[in-house]
Simulated assay, not measured.
Amino acid sequence: MTTPDLILHHYLASPFSEKIRRALGFKKLAWNSVLVPSISPKPDVVALTGGYRRTPVLQIGADIYCDTALICDVLEHVQPEPHLYPPALRGCCRVFAQWADTTLYGAAMTYNLQPRGLAQLFGGDAEVARAFKEDRKAMRVNMTQLRPADATSALRSYLRRIASMVEEHDFLFGAEPCVADFSTYHPLWFMRTQVPVMADLLAITPAIDEWMDRIAALGHGRMERLSAEDAITVAQRSEPAPAGDNLLVDSAFQDDHGIPLGTRVTVTPESFGAEVTEGELIAATRTHYSIRRTDPRAGTVHVHFPRIGYVLRAAPA
């Protein structure tokens, strides 16, 4: 199978982008890098997604893949080995990755983005820090935010538990990394590299530092820069893959909502980043939703979301 051209829309300090950059390095894949703003507005991203604005987004031609859980599935299909989901650990590593991407991430980032961390992240520029805080506050609609002290306590416990795993093995579940490693790594990478003033917490678990060094040694794959305008041109000049014939291997319709294919629908994240994407439902499988939409700049695109963590509704009449 010919490896498709992978375009990752990301920004350098984005933790979830680092998760995917390390997965690309693990699989030694070539990819195109489109740098996007860390806060709204993101007109070039929205031209492709129709509303979704979380980072990163993976583009392959006119197919747009949202959420790192789904992006990892795509990378596994593009290049099955080395495995992100080792056959003997497939369920275990998925469950652990989901915990790390939600519970661990929430505690770590609440701890990381306390005033000392924010000041270092933005070089003491109070106005930029304020804009970032307001942007993220708007994305946390209906979310319960941990208090910093509670996040710190939880994070200390999580670090000790993670350390006990990597004291026994090079990686969380054995001699090779899997998706659980990359999901666990990225909020701790943010602490260690973006807000090192907060990284003294890692001193209690030296085994984690050694494990992080092993993941960092995997690199980021082979990257070339691409402009946002060129990426949109790629979408505009491409035809999206037919539903059931893209890089998401399951295609059987699973109707849990009473919404038939062809219906105008909206897809919205359950929690963080509640922007709505609207389009025609062309797939609803056991793992993902796909919608077709047309944009004046990007043309007709298919936008794909994981089923877990996203809300499907019929669009208002």
Rank of each mutant, 00 (worst) to 15 (best):
T102I: 03
G106E: 15
P82A: 12
A129S: 13
L118M: 11
Q120L: 14
T102A: 06
A62D: 04
V74H: 13
D101Q: 05
C72N: 14
G123K: 04
Y85R: 10
Y105D: 12
L70W: 00
L121I: 00
G61F: 04
A107I: 00
E81K: 12
D63H: 05
Q98F: 06
G61I: 04
P115G: 08
V95T: 06
D101F: 03
L84I: 04
A88N: 14
E76H: 09
G124A: 01
A119E: 03
Q114P: 13
L118C: 02
T68A: 08
C66G: 11
P86K: 07
P115D: 00
A69G: 15
Y65L: 15
L121D: 02
C66S: 11
E127I: 02
A88C: 10
T68L: 08
D73A: 13
A119V: 01
Y85T: 06
T103M: 08
W99P: 00
E81D: 15
A100S: 12
Q98T: 14
E76L: 15
V74W: 08
P115W: 04
P87I: 09
P87N: 11
Q79L: 11
E127T: 02
Y105I: 05
R116Y: 01
G91T: 13
Q114Y: 00
L118I: 04
L75P: 09
P82E: 11
N112L: 00
G61K: 10
V74F: 11
A97T: 01
Q98D: 14
Q120E: 12
W99Q: 05
G117H: 05
L121H: 11
A129F: 03
V95H: 10
D73M: 12
F122W: 10
R116G: 11
Y105K: 09
L89E: 03
A107D: 04
C66N: 15
Y111S: 06
I71H: 12
Y105S: 04
H83K: 07
T102H: 01
L104P: 10
T68F: 07
V78S: 03
L89W: 06
Q79C: 15
V78A: 06
C92Y: 03
E81N: 12
I64Y: 06
L84P: 08
H77S: 12
